[in-house]
Amino acid sequence: MAVVGGTAPISTTPSSSTGEVVEYAQWRSRLLWYLTTCTGLGALVMLWMVLFYAGTDATQGHVQRIFYIHISAYSGGSVVFFVTVLAGVMYLITRNLKWDRLAVSSVEVGLPLMTVCLVTGAAWARPIWNTWWTADPRLNGMAVMWLLYAAYLTLRGAVENPDRRARFAAVYGILAFISVVYVFLIPRVRTDTMHPVVIGPSVSNPAAEGGFEVRVEDRMGATMGVAMIWWCTAALVLLWHRVRLENLAERVRAFKARLTN
């Protein structure tokens, strides 16, 4: 489910110079709350499918259920990090600070999702690989990615001039996305990672595709599909709320500036 209005409200940018009150179109707010409700109920459906509908994996047992969360959290995270890239490029082209607000919002939504991916991954690896963490190429990439986006937020905090901050953040957000692409591609093109490829083909390493029933078992496949859709939707809904918060903060700043002048 694509959230069509995911980036919509930022077009009603509050004018920062005058601080005038800009209301969002009513249908947009309605759509957002409708989506939020659906996402909230969808969480229950997803959890029900993960816990009861999908069935227990023959070899890994209950631990395998973590996959439904682990992979889809990564998908949601990479979708919003791609939004960071788009917002960065759009900012560099248009120089409209609304794109910068979208960029910072997307990183703040994406980073927790990637943290979910890391934590669930470690929890899965402990019983299956017998270690929480190992220097596997894909895991290394994940660590680098997490640090990069954390550094993105630090960089923003350290630059005071808003235009300069937006410019630097756009550049850094584009650079950081290399890590997302790397993590997605690495087990598909190389043979020296033991991380499984759960979805889609692995060009050079068919062994990494593994015998996961996700590929052959309909119920597991359906659960994975629903989980992926849920996490991507939840990411975009969260992003939408976060952008609204950022717009509100901008309005407060503008009011403050008007009061002090």
């Binding site: 680098v144 990069l148 630090t154 960089l155 850094y172």
Partner: peptide, 13 residues
């Protein structure tokens, strides 16, 4: 402090 924080993650690979 900012330079190491933004350079080191990229230097890690």
């Amino acid at each position: 402090t900012t330079l190491p924080i933004i350079v080191l993650p990229i230097a890690l690979p």
